[in-house]
């Protein structure tokens, strides 16, 4: 997948994860990588950038294992940004599905026929 495109989606997901509760770095990575094939080297730079742009604030909090952890908290600006990205995403993906599903049942028949033909070759 186009990496620019992927980054945009991850940005959206990171923002979403932080709406219900503040999280520390690794817990965000863990939450996302549970569902998406992404790792730290994509997620961390995004979090850092979003923090720099004022979408998140950070603070340190002691953890049960000893060392304090940096928690990320979504700001009002971040929440508004999430809403606008979400909107953009819904529109975009909606349009994509319209295109992919265009033709309805007939489209599926065409695909089926095409698949049959490819298999024969």
């Amino acid at each position: 997948m186009n990496s620019q495109f992927k980054r945009g989606i991850i940005e959206l997901c990171v923002l979403k994860e932080l709406i219900p509760e503040d999280m520390y770095g690794y817990s965000i990575i863990k939450a996302l990588s549970e569902h998406l094939n992404v790792n730290e080297n994509t997620i961390y730079p995004i979090m850092r950038r979003l923090t720099k742009e004022g979408y998140f604030t950070t603070y340190l909090k002691e953890s049960s294992s000893g060392a304090p952890r940096k928690y990320y908290h979504i700001s009002k600006k971040g929440f508004e940004y999430y809403l606008s990205l979400r909107d953009e995403w819904d529109q975009f993906i909606g349009g994509v599905y319209v295109i992919l599903n265009k033709g309805g049942k007939k489209n599926e028949e065409v695909l089926e026929r095409f698949r049959g033909r490819v298999e024969k070759e």
Partner: peptide, 30 residues
């Protein structure tokens, strides 16, 4: 901090490698 948290979470060395990826990529992204 993140690596420590991952180890605390019980990740093996191998898992750590896949979760954290190549330092070069992070640096370039950053």
């Amino acid at each position: 901090e993140m690596i420590e948290a991952a180890i605390n979470d019980g990740l093996s060395d191998e898992e750590l490698n896949t979760k954290f990826g190549d330092p070069k990529t992070v640096a370039e992204e950053l």
